[in-house]
Write a protein that binds this DNA or RNA. Structure first.
Lengths: 249, 249
DNA sequence: GCACTTTTCTCATTCAATGAGAAGCGAACT
DNA sequence: AGTTCGCTTCTCATTGAATGAGAAAAGTGC
């Protein structure tokens, strides 16, 4: 970066700025944003002005900064996630209605679970998934299902980076993977919340590997889990077909 | 831009690259992208590499470029649209089920209708709205409802830029605006498709101005329009309440 | 092998972008 | 009114991230 000791590129800075916002920090003051993004104040104001001019960020009357609608538009207009969401939404609605619980659609992204869509349900159990939020692979049923139905190279790569944490959570990791593949879904108790059980089934491509998972979080009950697993697998097949991937779970 | 005759900033270029993708061009070759974004080939490759490194773009084995998941994540994680979607989704589902037609959630953005969400319905009438797509204000019921319930300054600003096209579509513009405000919804025949009727009702803030509209596209029938209008207004009130805006349509 | 496209690299050049610090502004307090 | 503080804008000398033409390398199809 010209005349800057930091060596940042413009792109580095831009990403850091966008990364400064999250579900708990939807709007930020300029000084907080500068601090979070590690950008000197004077530079921050300048960069902010040009980002606002492009509507990548917006600023309200009180000076608070938020993401701009144009950014949202550009990022969603041709997003791969859009095709996935469009195909999955009707099935998710079915699950949402039939099981009466929050329903998620997730993918494996940069070694974490990325929530693509979430249908909420009044009265359902507590669920900490947020759209565009991340959760750990080894501590969610979604994550374990995503991993179990991934290509061997992907599993290998993931483990090369996360073997210790995975083994700490799952000393019987290999057996667990095999069981998930056998039953066709993943189900774990008390991961995120001790009173809940997550159930997740993979949406498969025509080679039998996952492209996403559909999941619910249930009150902790043994009997409902198997029927939820079956319903999720059924929905997953429908989604797969709608995506024209020819997957068979 | 250093050593470039174009005078572009990095940000200009970045936005042009993202703007090169749309619903009909979800993936592009590098040379097509360079052409659409008006960036010299050598620069395009370099910029692409750094955008891929940040996962703002991704590249498949055949060299095709798409938007990256990280971009989607950053843009959606704290988006204002997310709150709106979350509040509106249950009501949209109700409308979707009860009226049996595609349902949209839209906002007024840069003098156009921006579709925030769309629930589809098998067997429903043709509908050209895409999520994160744009449609013209003067040729959609959504647009007319958005305008009718906007603050006077916004209406004035819009007209200062679009008076001719609005008058061409609606010689009786003022009367139309008054009628939409009186009935509480907008309904127009044959705008996008001669065989359909759009019906749109505003989601209002506590000052009585729109923050979004919820709409459906119906087969062309006079009787269904009034009941659809009422259902949409009912849904809109629920959404407004869920957003805690205290709106009363 | 040849022709064409795609991709990577070189290199002299450059200007968009930098940040410290000053100046301006507004709000809150005494 | 004066002072303090935080926010915002401006100045200015500086600079290195970024440039693109064109060459070279690599890949693809006939």
């Amino acid at each position: 970066m010209a005349n800057s000791p930091s060596g940042d590129s413009m792109l580095d800075r831009l990403v850091r700025i966008l990364d400064s916002f999250d579900a708990n920090n939807q709007s930020l003051s300029v000084s907080v944003l500068a601090r979070r993004a590690d950008i000197p104040q004077a530079s921050m104001y300048r960069l902010l002005d040009s980002m606002v001019a492009h509507d990548l960020l917006s600023r309200d009357a009180s000076g608070q900064v938020r993401l701009g609608l144009r950014l949202w538009e550009l990022a969603n207009r041709s997003a791969t996630t859009q095709d996935l969401r469009t195909a999955a939404l009707p099935f998710m609605e079915d699950i949402n209605q039939l099981l009466g619980q929050n329903t998620q659609l997730s993918v494996l992204h940069q070694d974490e679970v990325l929530i693509i869509e979430r249908l909420s349900r009044p009265g359902s159990v507590v669920n900490q998934a947020n759209v565009a939020g991340r959760m750990p692979v080894q501590r969610t049923s979604m994550g374990m299902a995503l991993l179990a139905f991934s290509r061997p190279e992907i599993i290998g790569d993931y483990l090369s980076r996360h073997d210790a944490v995975m083994t700490a959570s799952h000393p019987d990791f290999r057996a667990k993977m095999a069981e998930i593949r056998r039953t066709g879904y993943a189900s774990f108790d008390g991961f995120i919340d001790p009173e809940t059980t997550g159930v997740a089934a993979p949406i498969l491509d025509d080679a039998g590997y996952q492209v996403a998972v559909i999941s619910v979080v249930l009150p902790r009950q043994t009997r409902a889990v198997q029927s939820a697993g079956l319903a999720l697998r059924t929905a997953a097949r429908g989604i797969s077909r709608a995506l024209q991937l020819g997957g068979t779970a």
